[in-house]
Design a protein around this nucleic acid. Structure first.
Lengths: 243, 243
DNA sequence: CGTGAACTTGAGTCTCCTCAAGAACTGTGG
DNA sequence: CCACAGTTCTTGAGGAGACTCAAGTTCACG
């Protein structure tokens, strides 16, 4: 693999929902120096792992886009997040014999597999790694809670606005445009993640487009006014009402 | 303090929402042997810490009951969890200079303070501690996601049912009755946690009582039929419809 | 016994969901 | 290159669940 100095959980916490966080300094190459890493390639639709499979490794996203979800025996499903380059996957299964959720590629992905026992061992050898890993988990926790906040306190349209801003910020952190990007997930996925129905997501997007804050062309999104979108997403009255 | 071999995050993941998890084996006494612990006593209404205060330690609940919440600058609030004996607090602030949320006692509490740098150092000296701490964080992650699932996929009454079952299970794990307990938090707190209004929580409780699954007397809860409550909470059609 | 907080209950409203139909795009095979 | 099916997305109409507003009750505490 080329020398990509990616960072784990480079994404800060959810946009506009809690204090911004610096990217933890876990260098995947530093890990690779101590852990026998494997590379895996996934095509869109393939699973990285499924709930119930034995937990043996953490995964680092080198390229691509994935969806993590929880499925219950009675068929309910909850998308708990979307991952892109630099994100860590599988951490929630630490301490469990099996994976607790499903991760599926939404795109062609390149994944670095980090066998967990080896990672643990490496942590003892490299103290910084230990702290960095803890930090990665804590960052995950903060991110989840930011979304709990969004889902618990914002209307449908505001959740969608926040979702777009979060994506924008993450794309920006990876060097892509923050104002023009293509959604890799369906409306159903977005809705499931935000605790909304897909029709509601569509309506929210349509309405945001009608008010001129964004432009929508199927999965292509263009953000016209980040500031107004932010005002909407964080519920700060003024500009939000104007929209 | 008496020699209580408490475990961190002894509570399994949220009831009926995802696979049950074994309690991680982090013995607070083992930690105490390597870390200079401090004890703190809190009265109901006092804060253990607030968002913005410097992050310096993790906290272990030795007795009492606490509420964790996220507050935004525009006044929105999200309760992200309730903690009781054996739970770890402050983990979500690891890697952040300051605490990211508020923790307030709902009851008289006894808290063991574990200075974070010392905990990190102890992890290197005691490998098991390292794994146990990671596990505690992962358990938190699983718990949060189980609630995301509940909030995203269940109706108000089912969320409340799941909430009661979760509490029951946690009380049981601590050796208390799983079928008869007193809520330490207000309807407002429950509602905020479950993304509902307090009137809705009251109505859900009233209706559960009317159907005979529970008895409610202000904050005193008596569970009459755990199985029917479970059927309701996990959305498994049959018994749920009968109720 | 008075005050305030917490809880309960009702009535009306609104947001979001449900159901349904149609449009746009994708990939396949003729 | 076009027809076809399948999926995804859009939009509308109607309904249901949860919210809002409001009043009244109970309880805790001084």
């Amino acid at each position: 693999m080329s020398a990509v100095a990616s960072t784990v959980s480079s994404t800060a916490s959810t946009h506009a929902l809690s204090p911004r966080l610096p990217a933890p300094a876990l260098d995947i190459d530093a890990v690779a120096a101590h852990v026998p890493v494997l590379r895996r390639r996934l095509l869109a639709g393939q699973h990285l792992f499924r709930a119930g499979q034995p937990f043996r490794a953490l995964y680092f996203v080198h390229a691509g886009f994935l969806r993590t979800s929880l499925v219950t025996s009675d068929g309910r499903e909850q998308v708990t997040g979307f991952s892109m380059r630099g994100d860590l996957l599988g951490a929630e299964s630490i301490g469990s014999a099996t994976h607790v959720n499903d991760v599926v590629a939404l795109d062609t992905c390149e994944i670095v597999e980090l066998p967990y026992p080896a990672v643990l061992a490496a942590c003892l050898a490299v103290p910084q790694l230990h702290g960095a890993l803890m930090q990665a988990l804590a960052t995950e926790l903060r991110r989840d809670r930011s979304w709990m906040l969004a889902i618990g306190t914002l209307s449908a349209e505001r959740r969608v606005a926040g979702f777009l801003l979060d994506l924008a910020e993450r794309y920006k952190a990876l060097g892509f445009s923050a104002s023009h990007f293509v959604l890799r997930m369906s409306r159903v996925d977005i809705g499931n993640f935000l605790a909304l129905k897909h029709e509601t997501v569509t309506r929210a997007l349509s309405h945001l487009a009608a008010t001129g804050l964004i432009e929508v062309d199927r999965r292509e999104i263009r953000i016209r006014s980040t500031s107004q979108l932010e005002a909407l997403a964080c519920g700060c009255g003024d500009e939000a009402r104007a929209a």
